[in-house]
Deep mutational scan, measured.
Amino acid sequence: TEHYTFHTEEQAQRAAKKFKKQGLPVTIHEKNGKFTLQVN
């Protein structure tokens, strides 16, 4: 499991699309105004 932190939801969504294209499951969590992208 890898985690990436982004300052905006837009950045997180863009990164999520790249991972999803590779067939990886992705979840985004919002915490304290930051967005954490979790790749399993």
Rank of each mutant, 00 (worst) to 15 (best):
K17W: 11
Q13H: 07
N40L: 13
E30S: 08
K17I: 13
K20P: 00
H7E: 14
H7W: 11
A12L: 03
Q22W: 13
T36Q: 09
K31L: 11
N40E: 11
V39N: 02
V26D: 00
R14Y: 07
T8N: 07
Y4W: 11
T27N: 05
H7L: 12
Q11N: 05
P25A: 15
V39T: 05
I28V: 07
Q11P: 02
K20Q: 12
E2M: 14
T8P: 00
Q22S: 07
L37A: 02
T27W: 07
F6L: 02
A15E: 05
E10A: 12
A16I: 05
H3C: 15
P25D: 15
K34P: 00
A12N: 00
F35V: 03
F6Q: 00
V26C: 09
F35I: 04
P25L: 15
V26T: 06
E9R: 15
K21N: 10
T5H: 11
K17V: 10
I28F: 03
T36N: 06
E10V: 08
T27G: 03
L24C: 06
A12I: 02
K20A: 11
K21H: 07
P25G: 13
K20N: 06
H29A: 09
E2K: 14
Y4Q: 05
H3N: 09
Q11C: 11
T8Q: 03
I28E: 01
P25W: 15
E30G: 06
T36C: 15
A12K: 00
Q13S: 06
V39A: 03
K18E: 10
T36K: 05
F19N: 00
N32Q: 05
E30R: 09
V26Y: 08
Q13R: 13
H29R: 10
N32G: 07
E2D: 10
K18R: 12
Q38R: 08
N32A: 05
F6E: 00
T1D: 09
V39F: 13
Q38K: 07
H3Q: 12
K17Y: 10
F6S: 00
K17E: 14
L24N: 04
Y4N: 05
L24P: 01
Q22D: 06
T1E: 09
F6D: 00
H29N: 07
L24D: 02
T5M: 08
A12Q: 00
T1S: 10
K20G: 06
E9A: 11
K20V: 11
T1K: 10
A15G: 03
Q22C: 15
G23T: 01
G33S: 03
Q11A: 14
P25K: 15
T1I: 13
T36R: 06
F35K: 01
K17L: 14
H29M: 12
H29Q: 10
Q11L: 08
K34R: 10
T1N: 09
F35T: 02
T8I: 04
A15N: 02
R14H: 08
V39P: 03
V26Q: 00
A12R: 01
T5S: 07
G33R: 02
K17M: 14
K31G: 06
K20M: 14
L24E: 03
G33L: 02
F19L: 09
K20I: 14
T1M: 12
G23R: 04
Q13P: 00
E30I: 09
H29S: 11
K20R: 14
F6C: 06
L24R: 07
A16Y: 08
T8G: 03
K18Q: 09
G33K: 03
A12Y: 01
N32T: 02
T36M: 11
T36L: 13
A16N: 00
Q11I: 04
A16T: 02
A12P: 00
V39Q: 02
A16P: 00
Y4I: 06
Q38A: 09
N40M: 12
K21C: 12
K31Y: 13
N40R: 08
T36S: 06
Q13G: 04
G23P: 01
T36E: 13
F6A: 01
Q13Y: 09
K21M: 13
E2I: 14
T1W: 14
I28S: 01
F35S: 01
H3S: 12
Q11Y: 04
E2Y: 14
K17Q: 13
K17A: 14
L37N: 01
